[in-house]
């Protein structure tokens, strides 16, 4: 099968499956749309970005976030369900000039849904999963991050029930920014340790 007929087949196959599940009363015509909507509006990386921004401006909050991630998040005004599916047991780790953390799930694709939404393709890529655990510095270099030899690298393999995310380093040039402004520059990649937070030059 060539690429376009492979995708056309997949698209028809999934529509056939969804259609039969609706006909048979397993799900409704709205179920799948509602799930997609939930991850577009309620649970996504925009929540994580707000958490990180707050941690950057409020050292006490950051301390609580590192010590007891769920209870610190619960104090924020975020949508109901921050300890919901794939967020039941979350933990945050902090990147500093001395320690760089990178998250990987070598067995599958475990990811903290409520704070980060769904995992991007690079995180699910078998090549990333294979290499990040063996040669994280080389992988990070390919992603554009040069980690100095003096900085310790910690790779977290999500192999049980904890879902990890990273508080990235606050970038220079953001002094005096509000939490709202800071949240706009935090990316899912930075919150898994695969990128640094960049400040757009146009700001």
């Amino acid at each position: 099968m060539n690429e376009s007929s492979r995708e056309a087949y997949n698209a028809a196959r999934i529509k056939a499956l969804e259609s039969l599940l609706i006909e048979k009363g397993i799900i409704t015509s709205e179920t799948v749309d509602q799930v997609i909507d939930f991850f577009e509006k309620d649970m996504g990386p925009f929540n994580g970005a707000k958490i990180v921004a707050k941690a950057w401006v409020d050292p006490d909050f950051k301390q609580r976030l590192l010590e007891d991630t769920p209870s610190a998040i619960a104090q924020m005004n975020l949508p109901r369900g921050m300890a919901g599916a794939e967020g039941e047991h979350m933990k945050a780790v902090e990147n500093t000039p001395d320690v760089h953390n990178l998250i990987v799930c070598t067995l599958c694709s475990c990811y903290p849904w409520p704070v980060l939404g769904l995992p991007p393709y690079w995180f699910k890529d078998p090549t990333f999963r294979a290499r990040a655990i063996r040669e994280p510095r080389k992988v990070l270099k390919e992603f554009g991050l040069d980690i100095p030899e003096t900085t310790e690298v910690r790779v977290w393999d999500t192999s049980a029930q904890i879902r990890w995310f990273v508080i990235p380093e606050r970038p220079a040039g953001t002094e005096g920014w509000t939490e709202e402004q800071l949240a706009t520059v935090v990316t899912p990649e930075a919150m898994q340790g695969a990128a640094k937070v960049q400040v757009p030059t146009s700001i």
């Binding site: 499956l17 969804e18 179920t31 799948v32 509602q34 997609i36 769904l118």
Partner: peptide
């Protein structure tokens, strides 16, 4: 294994959202 595909999208085909939704359901 060579280089990693640093693809930042969650879904690369619209149909992928549907199978994800079914699994969640």
């Amino acid at each position: 294994l060579g280089r990693i595909n640093f693809e930042k999208r969650v879904f690369v085909q619209p149909w992928e959202k549907r199978i994800f939704g079914i699994h969640v359901a």
